[in-house]
Design a protein around this nucleic acid. Sequence first.
DNA 1: TATGCTAACGTCAGCGCTGACGTTGATTCG
DNA 2: CGAATCAACGTCAGCGCTGACGTTAGCATA
Lengths: 344, 344
Amino acid sequence: MSEKRPTLDDVARIVGVSGKTVARVINNEPGVGEAMRARVMAVVEQIGYQANVSARALASSRTFRVGILSSAITRFFMTQFYRGASDVCLARGYQMVLRELEGSSPEELVDLERQLRANPLDGLFVAAPLSDNYALLDMLDRLQIRYVRHTPIDEIGRSDAVFADDVAGASALARHLWGLGHRRFGILRGPDFHLAGRLRHDAFRDQVLALGADPAEVNAVLWERPQDQDTAGFAETAQLLAHPSRPTAISAFNDELAAGALAQGHQMGLSLPRDLAVVGYGNAEFARLTWPPLTTVRQPNREMAICAMEWLTSPPVAGVRQQAFPIELVFRASCGRLLQTAEG
Amino acid sequence: MSEKRPTLDDVARIVGVSGKTVARVINNEPGVGEAMRARVMAVVEQIGYQANVSARALASSRTFRVGILSSAITRFFMTQFYRGASDVCLARGYQMVLRELEGSSPEELVDLERQLRANPLDGLFVAAPLSDNYALLDMLDRLQIRYVRHTPIDEIGRSDAVFADDVAGASALARHLWGLGHRRFGILRGPDFHLAGRLRHDAFRDQVLALGADPAEVNAVLWERPQDQDTAGFAETAQLLAHPSRPTAISAFNDELAAGALAQGHQMGLSLPRDLAVVGYGNAEFARLTWPPLTTVRQPNREMAICAMEWLTSPPVAGVRQQAFPIELVFRASCGRLLQTAEG
DNA sequence: TATGCTAACGTCAGCGCTGACGTTGATTCG
DNA sequence: CGAATCAACGTCAGCGCTGACGTTAGCATA
């Protein structure tokens, strides 16, 4: 409010042209000569003109706003999305908004739909596991909101999507543990509604079996988010360790569960990693802070978000765009000393 | 785009009144009778009218957008802010946007100012430690942007602020450890530019000295963010433990450093928590996942964000509003069994 | 009964852009 | 050399609201 902020017409008046010409310049539209373009830009720079997003949105029925939709906006992997998305939005003059959809009850969906109607977005990045909630996707389609999904896999090519290869990650962990000499495995399996939970479990199991493991010595326990958050994975780990063919290595759905497995191991008096190797998934911030520090899989979340946001802030294209991103193993101490070099 | 979304005039036409009357109703302005208000609301509900935020922003020079500014948008305590802030924004029809200001170089500030000019906000929540960056605050004042600071302390009553009592938290930890019988203390001190770092250090030290500790047996090491993120606090902990009066308890600036202290303890072959007690600060997500799980201080971040956002989305008031929030000790195993009940 | 006052509405000009549609002068070509 | 073409501009009516300012009918009051 201090000094009124300059408008497009202010620029036009100074240059001595029509507002439309200025608009053509700042929007990079054709129909202006090079000389004029330079003159306009000079004045724009000089008085520090910035387009008014609200006016632009009102007149053009675009909003210059993109959203990130997640069922857990506080999780670490989400914050990596924010950083990547934020960079793109900043560079392209878009606003980034966050929206949480905790459950998937019809009421929550209706609520989201209402809010999306009231505050439309130019695009939405849908993070896993919401990305496989078809009721949600149908709603977005109905509202004709563009979206990019972050999903483990999309067999049917339903929409634009970015993915990190869960099968490759879980298989690599399996080969790593096998290479260290482990033959009896426990799997802390993620919830089934989380597609990645199924994929990682299957890939890990298939890989160790392919390497020659005895099916009777590869056991999984399903983890369902317990009431007591302080003991994530404790009971499930105890259950795995109580099995007749007690595993020497545990592969957990994520780093949180892996940390729980380590804690349970400590509590049972095991010496880690000698008595029990543990691998996580996701390379959470705390993976380096457990004891022993977790061997895990890094997912290129930042890069995926950047890609998704670049799509969403660019003109639509025909057809479906899908992009896979390579994962990367992060070796720490939770599997003990390596007996042989792990493959790349 | 499917079916054109209803406008204020659509509602007015159906009810048979002027658009202004509808506006009065949906904005809860005076000047409409009860009967009319009910008639309008009925139609609003029926056709699902939602005000167009862009139009409203353009006409009223408000933006219905509030921001959260942080130097580390990926930290766990920030995500707790998002959740609280998001709830308020959703309920009040505001958009929440995130902005990171990593360093505090003049260039970055200029950049932020440009962006704030281009995309004005109705208010900004400034998280610590940016909340004590006076260059930033001066800039916001100059732009006449309302803001609420999240800061440990504000002696001069410079602006609206919410704070959790760092002095109370650090003192309580000190009393807890003292009560468990500890007499020699190490402090992993936070960086000085982080006001909370100084406050927590001073409060802890003052408290144990007041309880009778020997000043020679209360030592601090300054932590500066190391290059190698994988070993946060390792070297500093080793330094503390190498001191002639080797501490039996370490108080860390935050949970991350505390986890590093635990890891270093393990690495040195100590039996935790018998040989070394550790307390953190902040109750990060992973505090329950370390071994032993961390005793720490919970800060009511969600509640603070809710308060701040309620202020920012309400009409301004005269004077400065400041609100303190109580902290809460979270007892876990990292200090061993309690010898006596800790105070409330 | 004339006057003033007020609650309950209405009117209308923008807010700062955009999109569709002019206009003009220079260039090209039959 | 006149008509057609086209790049380079200009004009203008909105987009859907809001804020400032009418208008009117009903009621209290002198």
